[in-house]
Design a protein around this nucleic acid. Structure first.
Lengths: 193, 193
DNA sequence: GGTTTTCCGTACAGTACCGTACGGAAGGTG
DNA sequence: CACCTTCCGTACGGTACTGTACGGAAAACC
């Protein structure tokens, strides 16, 4: 039923799945081999060691989960529509659900840290550009980008961790709309009375 | 220099520190014993096993990090001021920084899941109450509570994971103000044109 | 100050994973 | 069909952790 011979990509996708489910510690050669129906002999032909698998898996995620999405929405002329499309894609089409919390939990890992750093910078920079295009001055645009990205990250996190405790976050389209509009509409004046 | 004899609480705080730093997998008896300057013989007198330590540590965190904060701000009459105080306390006075991402990353853990569930429900319920007090109808209040709590969770997560990639999130008081006001000011009308 | 309780060290299996070395089967190539 | 490359299984040693059993020191009590 399963493939007899595995490719490198098979191991990468399996690693990303395990990473999203059980964190960095779950990216272990023996359990993955067991799940793939082979022995560890297969792994050590494709990869040098466990860290190599982790590094390559993160590089693949970095490309698919960031650059690909940005390219898809970069052609939308109207900034607000561009933001809406971006958030909706990022939230609803996430192929590796729950991967980001797993990475953040091991942000001190020497393999995880660089990938996380690059992705965060790339995404917040893109957001800040759009908010600036909407008329916010540069510092405000960066603040707003940080807020929006934090909200996105937290949303993904809660949806994965506690879907039953927060039912509207899982499958309520109205809640999603509320959330997206909350991110799109930047608040101009924030000085408390 | 270090205490000769340890109490149960010593193990609990050490477990929470390790949990915040290295995730659930880092709550291991032998490394903790080494860090505390004792052997594992000490541990197995205080606790039945590793899961017991994890469970009790989470219960302690649950009480300190949720109920205690809510009680502190519950006396503030003005709802907006109550929200501001709540968020500022939760963000700036978090004693166990980075613990939540570690928990979310192992949300499927049978010990972690119940604690996470209870905390999420308690916090979002409190937020929804305040937003309702601000005039939002019940569903909107719940949506807004979910948004605000997601933003808070993501903020804590980013601050711990990528402080260098997002410098304003770490130690910029203006960014913090922007963020808090972004959460306090609920957006009434969200229908896109 | 002797006894009891509290706490910790030591020693012993047992488990799960890593990485290496090597042999051999499966699959393409001439 | 020989041959060579690609891929995988097996076997070995090593590391790190878990939990248990038991003895003994350190504090507390009267």
């Amino acid at each position: 039923m399963a493939k007899q011979r595995l490719s490198k990509q098979d191991w990468l996708t399996a690693a990303l799945t395990a990473l999203a489910e059980g964190g960095v510690g779950a990216v272990a050669v023996e359990p993955l081999a067991h799940r793939l129906g082979v022995t560890r002999g297969s792994f050590y032909w494709h990869f040098a060691d466990r860290n190599a698998l982790l590094r390559e898996a993160l590089e693949w995620w970095e490309a698919q989960g960031t650059e690909a999405v940005i390219e898809r929405v970069d052609g939308i002329a109207e900034p607000r529509q561009r933001l809406r499309a971006l958030f909706r894609i990022a939230i609803t089409e996430d192929p590796t659900n729950g991967l980001e919390p797993a990475l953040v939990a091991h942000a001190d890992d020497p393999v995880v840290a660089p990938a996380l750093h690059r992705v965060t910078r790339r995404r917040t920079a893109f957001l800040a550009e759009v908010y600036a295009e909407l008329g916010l001055p540069a510092p405000q645009a960066r603040y707003q980008a940080a807020c929006a990205y934090a909200a996105y990250v937290g949303w993904m996190q809660l949806r994965r961790a506690t879907p039953t405790a927060l039912p509207e976050i899982a499958d309520d389209p109205d809640a999603l709309t509320h959330f997206v509009e909350h991110l799109v509409l930047a608040i101009p004046d924030t000085t408390p009375p």
